[in-house]
């Protein structure tokens, strides 16, 4: 298969970027999107040109490292998958494909299609943990947790922190990510001691890092590789409101 690529090239955070045209020739239909870029890069390297910089690691949809906005969709067309799980057979032969980096003020561009997503690490550092000493792996079911709650917490815990939610959101909001993190800990008994401080600190760090706020378009949910439901954002809003009331009451007395 052959494709015409329009790829965002940018030297670093401080220089202006632009789209450059490339030809992807002789690409097997079973190649993944990242393998297609690898083939294009081999050609560029052979011609002594600068290869296209993009992120990847596990290439099996688990690590959350690959990014890319393909034809205007974070992680490209199709539901519940990362860019590395996108295959070229999904495209028409001869199709023009637009490839852009995840765009958000809080995700500065490192080079070409690579963005710095350490803003998410800062949000996690602000409260995405429990302080209980866990020691070695405890016995399963030593703390009984109802199935409904356990399932819901597990759904939220499926978040791989790739940042597609913030990339897809018209407001570059990270609320689906933060909602998943506060829900996965806040639903479980182990997460209760820090529930109030967690949501408060994570939301305020998210704001301080320059992410926008949710206007309920649900673009995030549509592109999330882990299919995290946007209704978790409603839980985030509720937990934040409750945490603010608790904080207010604590300050009074």
């Amino acid at each position: 298969m052959n494709f015409k690529l329009k790829v965002w090239r940018q030297q670093n955070e401080n220089t202006a970027g632009q789209f450059r045209d490339y030809e992807a020739i002789n690409i097997p239909a079973e190649a993944s999107f990242l393998e297609m870029l690898d083939i294009v890069n081999e050609g560029l390297i052979a011609r002594q040109e600068e290869p296209i910089a993009f992120d990847s690691d596990c290439r099996e949809g688990i690590c959350g490292m690959c990014s890319l906005v393909v034809n205007g969709i974070a992680h490209g067309p199709g539901k519940a998958k990362t860019t590395c799980q996108l295959y070229m057979r999904r495209f028409q032969d001869g199709e023009t494909i637009w490839i852009e980096p995840f765009r958000a003020a809080a995700f500065p561009i490192v080079k070409d299609l690579i963005v710095d997503r350490s803003a998410f690490d800062r949000i996690i550092q602000a409260g995405g943990y429990i302080t209980a000493r866990t020691g070695s792996a405890p016995d399963a079911n030593s703390i009984p947790i109802g199935k409904t709650v356990a399932d819901l917490a597990m759904e939220a815990a499926a978040c791989i922190g790739c940042g597609a939610c913030a990339a897809a959101c018209p407001n570059s909001s990270a609320m689906l990510f933060v909602a998943a993190k506060i829900s996965h800990l806040g639903l479980l008994p182990q997460g209760q001691p820090e529930r109030t401080s967690r949501v408060r600190n994570m939301v305020r760090t998210m704001d301080a890092l320059g992410f926008g706020s949710c206007t309920n378009h649900y673009e995030c949910e549509a592109v999330c590789p882990a299919e995290i439901s946007a209704t978790f954002i409603s839980r985030l809003n509720r937990d934040y409101a409750v945490a603010s009331i608790r904080e207010g009451l604590a300050a009074r007395g």
Partner: peptide
């Protein structure tokens, strides 16, 4: 802004 944004849900 994205040069080519493709709304999925909005």
């Amino acid at each position: 802004k994205y040069a080519h944004y493709n709304y999925q849900a909005a």
